[in-house]
Design a protein around this nucleic acid. Structure first.
Lengths: 211, 211
DNA sequence: TGTACATCAGTGAACGCGCGTTCACTGATGTAC
DNA sequence: TGTACATCAGTGAACGCGCGTTCACTGATGTAC
């Protein structure tokens, strides 16, 4: 890459980091201003336009980044499970690590999922659907392997993602102690769903035989 | 009430309705301006201060209102169930009716739950906790009655509320046809949780006996 | 290698805009006698 | 019932502010020969 292209890349990165850094419980992406972000990144407001057409374009780049990280994470969790960890426990552990190391990426997903901008909502929904679909495949594989197939792996995964995100939002701004409690709760709630979906398969089979 | 007090009450109502009306998929409470709301309500911007100290105070009044409506709704659902409706089915039906008739109240809860203002988050969390706790009591009562007690009714209720709200947000801006599909999905996902929590009670009992 | 020209990331001045908030006011409603 | 005064919801002018965006520019980097 040429010197010029490298420098441009660096500034782009600085802009994205500036936006990300400014997120907090009291400040959402929607309440950032272009001038604020440029200031934080150390460039003139007008220079912003050399990199993005508008602030939302930067936001969407961040959503994309959050998605990439999330997928890396899943691959990681899968490896740990293959090496013999408990599926639910390991997944929760991995997810909580993601939360701690990328709180603002998660904050962005969490908030803009129900936010003002259609583009954000669509992009985030796509990331979450992708996440849920991969999870569904994992669940199906695991269920078949243990000979305890799930009633509808996709629905199980959807329900799990809803609960994971809900608890994630509570975990974001809580103390380590509270986090431990939340992990326990999350584990139990996910088990309800899993066991329920296993049992319903069995019940439906019995019903079909009876017919 | 004196004429003056009545008129004041009316204007206050007009302000709250103005704010509520302006909410939409593209506009959240956080992106309303005091001037906009006053304009919509037909008063001068300065008159706003005769009713609220700031825009957020109006928003919190709306959250409170949403909570009241939500509780009325639960009482209604409980009555219908006592008259012999299916518990899960009736609850979902009632909730979806709430969504359709108070979309903007729900939008407010949904968005500001993860929003910028601590006061909003706290107020909404209190409403949802209250909702979940009442639900937990209902679930416990129903489970004991059928002699299929739930492992931990409060957790079951928490998980259910997370899923209900998640699906509610999808249902908000979807067609009647999509709504029907969502209702089915919601029903199944809630059943997973319920059945799971029932089974785990049984399994734990067996385990305790074995010890 | 040296020269002449092209590209383009970053700039500072300037713009018009809607915002929240203050202030001193008006005039209808309410109250005391 | 009538009168004199108090209350207070609603007002219009004015303020300073930060915003997004435009524009013509600068000067370092890149390219062609």
């Amino acid at each position: 890459m040429s010197v010029r292209a490298e420098q441009k890349q660096k500034t782009r990165r600085a802009l994205m980091d500036a936006a990300l850094t400014q997120l907090s419980p009291e400040k959402g992406f929607a309440s950032l201003s272009l001038r604020e972000v440029a200031r934080e990144a150390g460039i003139a407001p007008t220079s912003f336009y050399r990199h993005f057409n508008e602030l939302d374009e930067l936001g969407l780049a961040l959503v994309d980044e959050a998605g990439v990280t999330l997928r890396q994470l899943m691959r990681q969790a899968r490896k740990r499970i293959e090496k013999g960890g408990s599926a639910v426990g390991t997944s929760i552990e991995t997810f909580m690590e993601y939360l701690s190391s990328n709180p603002n990426h998660f904050r962005l997903l969490l908030r803009e999922r129900t936010g003002i901008s259609k583009a954000f909502r669509t992009a985030i929904k796509a990331e979450l659907d992708h996440f849920a679909t991969e999870l569904a495949e994992d669940l199906k594989r695991a269920g078949d392997l243990k000979d305890r197939p799930l009633d509808d792996p996709q629905m199980v995964a959807d329900a799990m993602v809803a609960i994971i995100f809900n608890q994630g939002s509570e975990a974001l701004d809580s103390s380590p102690k509270e986090k431990a409690t939340l992990k326990e709760r999350l584990k139990i709630e996910l088990k309800y769903i899993l066991r329920g979906a296993e049992i319903i398969t069995i019940e439906n089979r019995a019903k079909n035989k009876a017919d």
